[in-house]
């Protein structure tokens, strides 16, 4: 059997063995057999009508409903998201305002504190100054007193020495008045 023969016999289906139902169906298209039309039309009407009924009374309302619902829901969600965004912006603004407020208040408090501290410091300084001045004065007074005292003691010592020197030189005890005037004269000369 050549390839050509195979192709020819395949392409010519009439040559293929007809298995069954070869009785009434003559040659030609089964589609043109008008005797089958009433049955096909009847069952088409029944099945198509049934499908139409199913679609209109169950499927489409629910399917359309759920799609509608989802569309609404998504729109709602978008609105809600926009609302959240607005709130977030508000919160941010409030936060910024509070922050600025707090900063200003902190600055004010710092300034106030600084001022009061300065005052306190000045007070303390004044007090310290006064105390220092007082003790300074006291010290000066004591120094003056000690100076005077010291001077008096020096004079007394001088007088003693003078007396002793005079006694040794002339063997005469000078009167205290004479020593005094002599010392005064020396002190003046000095």
């Amino acid at each position: 059997m050549s390839l050509v023969a195979i192709l020819v016999s395949a392409a010519a289906p009439a040559a293929a063995p007809v298995v069954e139902g070869a009785g009434e169906a003559g040659p030609g298209l089964p589609q043109m057999d008008a005797s089958t039309y009433p049955s096909q039309l009847f069952w088409l009407a029944v099945t198509f009508g049934f499908l139409y009924w199913i679609m209109t009374s169950f499927v489409l309302p629910r399917l359309g409903g759920v799609i509608e619902e989802r569309r609404d829901r998504i729109a709602d969600d978008f609105d809600q998201a926009a609302e959240f965004k607005r709130k977030a912006e508000e919160a941010e603004a409030a936060y910024e305002a509070a922050l600025a407020d707090a900063k200003a208040r902190a600055r004010a408090i710092a300034a106030e504190t600084r001022e009061s501290l300065n005052e306190e410091l000045a007070e303390l300084q004044r007090e310290a100054d006064a105390r220092v001045a007082a003790s300074l004065a006291a010290a000066e007074a004591r120094i003056a007193a000690m100076k005077e005292d010291a001077a008096a003691k020096v004079r007394e010592a001088a007088a003693e020495v003078t007396r002793a020197v005079v006694e040794a030189l002339i063997d005469e005890t000078p009167t205290p008045e004479a020593v005094d005037s002599a010392l005064n004269g020396v002190a003046k000369a000095a």
Partner: peptide, 15 residues
């Protein structure tokens, strides 16, 4: 003639 044919059967299956 409205016999249930193979065509009708396949319509029913489709629906």
């Amino acid at each position: 003639d409205i016999s249930l044919t193979n065509s009708a059967l396949w319509m029913i299956i489709a629906v």
